[in-house]
Design a binder for these strands. Sequence first.
DNA 1: TTTCCGCATGATATCGTTGTCACATAAAAA
DNA 2: TTTTTATGTGACAACGATATCATGCGGAAA
Lengths: 329, 329
Amino acid sequence: MKDVAEIAGVSVSTVSRVISGKFAVEEGTASRVRSAILQLDYRPNLLAWGLRSRSGKFIGLVIPGIHEPFATMIGLLEEYVTRGGYSLLFGNTESGPEKENIFIDDLISRHVDGIVFSGVSEKSLALPKLAGTDIPIVLFDRVFNARENVVTVALNNEAAGRLAARYLVGLGHRRVATITGPPDLNLCKDRLHGFKDEVSRLGAALDERDIEVGDFSFDAGLKASQALFARKSAVTAVWAQNDLMAIGLMRGLASLGKRVPRDVSIVGADDIPFARMTVPSLSTVRQPFEAMCRQAVSSLLGYDDLSRSANRHFAFDPELVRRESAQSP
Amino acid sequence: MKDVAEIAGVSVSTVSRVISGKFAVEEGTASRVRSAILQLDYRPNLLAWGLRSRSGKFIGLVIPGIHEPFATMIGLLEEYVTRGGYSLLFGNTESGPEKENIFIDDLISRHVDGIVFSGVSEKSLALPKLAGTDIPIVLFDRVFNARENVVTVALNNEAAGRLAARYLVGLGHRRVATITGPPDLNLCKDRLHGFKDEVSRLGAALDERDIEVGDFSFDAGLKASQALFARKSAVTAVWAQNDLMAIGLMRGLASLGKRVPRDVSIVGADDIPFARMTVPSLSTVRQPFEAMCRQAVSSLLGYDDLSRSANRHFAFDPELVRRESAQSP
DNA sequence: TTTCCGCATGATATCGTTGTCACATAAAAA
DNA sequence: TTTTTATGTGACAACGATATCATGCGGAAA
């Protein structure tokens, strides 16, 4: 910057003013400065800028894995974040809470301007630690401990359960099963509650023994296929709380010689890119990731002014995507 | 830091020395400093540190998409990078060269310590721009213009083509087809050349009309299924240059009523997580992503001392993964 | 003419670190 | 005892930006 000033024959102050554009500079000097910048191929030092302004100009993303649907979320968040002139710093906390801990410390040290947080479990040390700072945070997808003052962005999980139930029972299934995610996650409880309640409200049956507890993984779906269908079963339809388990279930049923959807109807949740690629393609309860990510970023960057009175908890409605994996029994 | 110094009754210099640990400090003062740090919950400011040391302590990742196999790569790179005490800044350049351009500028402005570069196309402005800086760069996966002085990490693509050919012809297929990626990518040419050459060397046939040009997407595979099999065809096996197209092909064949692998054998490339999840599961030519990512990071962070004489171009050998989608005709 | 205001610009302090230099003290060598 | 050496510590400059304050200058109002 000093060099630029020298070449243009002005002071660094003036160079700074030309760059920021927020103050009046005579056109003659301004153009001299601009050509000096071009000549030297000058690029501002964001480290120095950040030090001065106490803002690193990035958004941190804490995420419990890189598999779908998180990959999709990462891509979307990156897009919105960079569009706002920020950069995305992301950390995968799958490997454990220590990793989460050092990542959060790093984010604080780097003076991130906001954090999108999707924790592995509810017992995270991150929140109390962050409370001591002025870093805005959005609890994303996996919401817990929703204190009033923290913004949350998530699916309306109970509605998702109800939607799946209405679809399957509506198709004519009388005896259904389900595979849940990790039971310590609120979202799983909510989805299960919605599903269970709607199934019984509509007069169909969900036996307690037909509720399989999974962990959102392909292998959990595989295992569930054994647990549910290795023996003769009256179940004709299954809702898996995410697509990965649904796909595992389909894969397991194929090995058992059951046909989907002829013998068993399957519905997933998320609508990951692969849902349309499987054979048969997967009917699923879609999460509106685009809208959710946009909301998360604009909450952090302060695009929507959530005045004190405004709602800080955003619950997005799921949407049913009909494909091939479910039909009438 | 000043506060810490005050509480501990020492100067900031001493605090700095205690933190860095690289200079002798009397144990008494050191422990006083440490307890002051704990008491204030002091965290160093990485922006200031970076400004002083001209190093932002991160690695930039330029990648042409967030879908597989890039998601896997991102996860792996993040792991190795953070393990080395750095952070990962990543940018998706799928949306075009302007995005790539501003991302590269951002990386320079942030004083990244290295860049893992996987460009969309060969005509990228990034390399010349980066040449003016002292930022180390590794060309990853998509290698081009491999000047001697730049490190490259990639699959041995010709070997991948040969491996696929040997497998399919070895199974007994006499007439094969293939789907390539974007033809302007060197890696596609190399894969095609290896495949073509090995097929004819082994005495089987790859007709020019049975070479479909794709773009690595699911839909390209879908389209290829029409182009290759909508009419009667003597082709009994197809190699797709990546798994996504192979899965699209399988999906398309299912719609055409062809069975895989009974009617057509299919082999992919990459071995993305979903390759084992499809029905039938996908046989594929595996890229050793773990080793490749580890190599990329350690080259950048200078863990392996590539002395001037040492090889700067790393080509990793592919590995055949036998699953269900290919069999003898 | 004097006074005052607005405008473009420069000098300088500051952000939170680390590195360089100087200095005091104590121990070792003369 | 005097000189040297080693050791721990503090003061201060620097990294590259921005923000605050001061200043010179031209024109409008008195």
